[in-house]
Amino acid sequence: MVRRHRLSTRLWHWGNAVTLLVLLMSGLMIFNAHPRLYWGEYGANPDHAWLDIGATVAGEDAFPGWATIPSTYSLADARLWHLAFAWVLALALLAYLAWSLANGHIRRDLHITRREWRLAHLWQDVRDHAALRFAGGAAALRYNTLQKIAYAAVLFGLLPLMIATGLAMSPGMDAGWPWFSAVWGGRQSARSVHFIVAFALVGFFVLHILMVLLAGPLNELRSIVTGWYRLPPSPSPDGPA
């Protein structure tokens, strides 16, 4: 048994998991209030929507009650949850990134080296994943390249994008920082990107859970809860550790 995940990583991981779930479910309820998406600055019912779900069955919402917060239609309540937890997401991400920069987590564990960016290496990593060959021994303590790319994409790409496009929809922010929504091509474009990136995060979640299940769920779960990880034998074993 070895130490795997730092306390800061474990705390942020679980706090962030709950926060993202609340943001997703309350966000789906907010979407239910106007289940249409547009590109550009403006967009309302008379305008062309690139996505239009729900409202096909009378009295039915685009996303069902089991997936939303609250479970019955309330735009006001969903906004209460969503806008409060948005602060939690942003401040926790900022603190975690600053802490991870200071303690070397980003440089040591997430930095993707030039060797790792090489196509041959990436291709090998893809083949190892496809064949469910997981690293054993000390190598299991390091994130593999695809894993690094996925985590870095969430930390430095998807989560900041969610915060930026969320703020870009605010009329108050728009007065202070007009470029903030202009870079997306307008408020309705920012709303569309917000929705798309939310589902990219759902996609990450599905892959993440799949990899945990394939790599040995108990060992992985223990390490992200307690920090302790049982090193799989080297070289890579056939079954779960």
Partner: peptide
């Protein structure tokens, strides 16, 4: 730009 709380503009 008029921004409705529902999401349209």
């Amino acid at each position: 730009r008029h921004d409705c709380v529902e999401g349209w503009s």
